[in-house]
Design a protein around this nucleic acid. Sequence first.
DNA 1: CGAGTTTGACCAGCGC
DNA 2: GCGCTGGTCAAACTCG
Length: 269
Amino acid sequence: MRGVDTCLKLNLTSSPQPQLNLVEGEDDEGLVEKLHRLSSENKRLTETLSHMCESYNVLQNQLKQFMISSSNYPDEMDHLITPQSQSRKRKATDHDDHKTYNNNMYGVNTSTISTSDHQEESYKKATKVSTVLVRTQPSDTSLYVRDGYQWRKYGQKVTRDNPSPRAYFKCSYAPTCPVKKKVQRSIEDPRVLVATYEGEHNHGCQVRLGSVGHCEEAQVGSSRLPNQLQNSIFNQFLVQQLATSFTTDPNFTAALASAISGSTILRPT
DNA sequence: CGAGTTTGACCAGCGC
DNA sequence: GCGCTGGTCAAACTCG
């Protein structure tokens, strides 16, 4: 999301001889009015996006502090660890020998680290893992999660612990982007898509003007997780959705409007 | 025709 | 060493 320029740069004061295709029955005044309307809407959307990004950064800092103050979660939450973290890892990278990941369903990476600070830093950068749950329409059987980035599917597998196939995606927006995504339907609720992101994008978010598609909502955890943490993750989801949908979806718009009305982003009940 | 998807084959880690 | 499994590759295919 960083560095996204959503401004359409509609210059209404200059260009006295605009090359506009006039619609039949529409005069210059109508067009200018339309441009003004679009410009103000664009400005409003830009402000909304800025607001969202600010809130996200604030809550991300709060989450960071929370993670520092409470080094691990209660044992009772162990059953919520995603299948990915429970299953065997095919590859033991240079750092895998020194780390174990507890990647829970809240999209929070609570890794246990025994490496040196330097190794820890480079590993974090290389393999940041997060999980997002997205509820879909019951009729929707696809494995696509719209998150603002462009993905290329490179494989699909049926895994042992889940009858639903797992799809493998690479970020295709930037050729050098190392981010990978795995998407699989939840074994408990087939309407829920579990998207696991590995790595960090080395480019900005690809903003697309489109509908929110099959995404109805994000499930960001149970009530046992502190609200601060849940809100932060929901905020992250909202920012992602904002990038993909803007205001074309009325439900999303309503949720967004209610979310940004307060000082923090609140998770819908 | 290029970009993206599908899908069977292959690779490599892990447990026995 | 062998079999199981998850992850990746790449040729064939589809679609705009």
